[in-house]
Design a protein around this nucleic acid. Sequence first.
DNA 1: TCTTAGTGTGTAATCGATTACATACCCTCG
DNA 2: CGAGGGTATGTAATCGATTACACACTAAGA
Lengths: 297, 297
Amino acid sequence: MFKAVAELGYRPNNVARNLRVRRTNVIALVVADIQNPYFSAVGKAVQDLAYSYGMQVILCNTDEDLEKEQQYLDVLKADNAAGIIIAPTHQSTESFRYLAELQLPTVVIDRSFRNIDLVLNMDNVVIDNRSAATELGLHLLGRQRKRLAGIFGYGSTTGRERYQGVMDAHKQAGVTPEADLFRFVAARELVGYTTCIELLERPDPPDAFVASNGLLAAGAYRALKERRIDIPHQLAFASFDDTLWTPMVSPAVTVVRQPTTEIGRVAVELLLKRIQDPELEGSETVLKSELVVRDST
Amino acid sequence: MFKAVAELGYRPNNVARNLRVRRTNVIALVVADIQNPYFSAVGKAVQDLAYSYGMQVILCNTDEDLEKEQQYLDVLKADNAAGIIIAPTHQSTESFRYLAELQLPTVVIDRSFRNIDLVLNMDNVVIDNRSAATELGLHLLGRQRKRLAGIFGYGSTTGRERYQGVMDAHKQAGVTPEADLFRFVAARELVGYTTCIELLERPDPPDAFVASNGLLAAGAYRALKERRIDIPHQLAFASFDDTLWTPMVSPAVTVVRQPTTEIGRVAVELLLKRIQDPELEGSETVLKSELVVRDST
DNA sequence: TCTTAGTGTGTAATCGATTACATACCCTCG
DNA sequence: CGAGGGTATGTAATCGATTACACACTAAGA
């Protein structure tokens, strides 16, 4: 039988099959930018695990552009995707309503929808950004440091939560934060670079600096090196996301390491359960991050 | 009309459409590892351009495993993918025959199939690895350096071509290469690290070092820093692939920069033409790479 | 021997769009 | 007024699998 199949060169047509059984084996990964090391690490994990379950992964870069994201979602619905794993650009009730109306099994990663006023049958996989940021903030505010600056991803709850955590750290350390030292900007390397320069050129520059994600950190660190800032003595530097370069530079960078592989794994497993039973109630998984202290602080 | 469509919430079913018109708008990107910065850069470019043409990109990590690659190819054929962009794991006649028999529009990137003895209706987008490696080798062999070591990706023509280029450089510089200083290994960060350590611990260690891709380079550089090797005085270091970290470390790393965005762009455009007309003759596009000299050499 | 369960084979409906073709309709021109 | 060209509408076939169902056949038990 199998021999005959092989000899005749029969290839089943999955498109026909998908039409008949009314589902596909494609799951979509919708993120801002696959070049962001955090997302590419998660993407790798998702891809590997999906493969072992016989599923394909489709890749969607939104560039943090809501319209682009929604166009992708429309296409995914039309394509009858089995499910989606998404780090949504906006965390507004409006955009979650759009997402929910697709009626596709959905797992939200990286960004929380705890504060969305809708009943959402979706799973959420995040880390505790606020307390991780508090821990990092307290670490930076130690040793008499008083002037912490920070750049945070604009538009995502992640950035806001990390900012909140840093504010909590100020309170706990008894330091008054200076509002103008904190900026919300687009998560791009170049933006990290220019914003960092801007902050350094103030008459009263900061003595500590935090970046809320790997891309911003890369840009900021480049600026610090270019200006020959003495790290950590003149200024302490730390960021979120442990990437290839953070341990390699001198001084090596203190970071909050996210469990990217674990995030991808949990996301896929939750998604597969939800594909089995789309009516499952929503859930929230908070994974542990880890403060990795290196020479930059 | 459009109003009625919107009000009734009609969503077309692309699966049915795809079945009827006998094609899909999915192109597959088949690479070893999306976390490899080279591939994630190309992937980003492919994804962005594909989006503008209304196509989806499916992501396949082969981990340089031929069986996994062929399983993916089978699925892609069954799924009726519109076309594939692939960096094939093996460049053997056998594996290219397999690829060709799928009868899918195909563009091969990163690795050459010039030496394959088959008539292949595929496009090839590469850089001139051999002469780029020669240029890099000559650069390293300058200033009285006589003992160049190198690690190259195992299994790909890319690694072999770059090795050949480095050998050419020895010839041109009038230096006799020492065979045991050159290793072909798997493209993983950890492998780069251990192999580098191994080479450093020889009784007569090298005075220059080259890594044939970004992942191996990351591991090797980490080893060099850990052993507190004085770069570039004690040992000059350079690699292929310009990534986030290469300009950030001290000393910044001299690299051969590949035009990743251009590679992705050209690959998609060739693929789209080939989807239009699958009978097009094969082509080869050789893009220019660039030697970026920094402090490590 | 007859019934019943279980197995095997064959035919037809189904998924939801596209596309081809037939039929009906309208307008214009000879 | 009738023929012809062009648009409109409607019906049916198609893509290639899955799945349901009818029917035939075999084997075991009453």
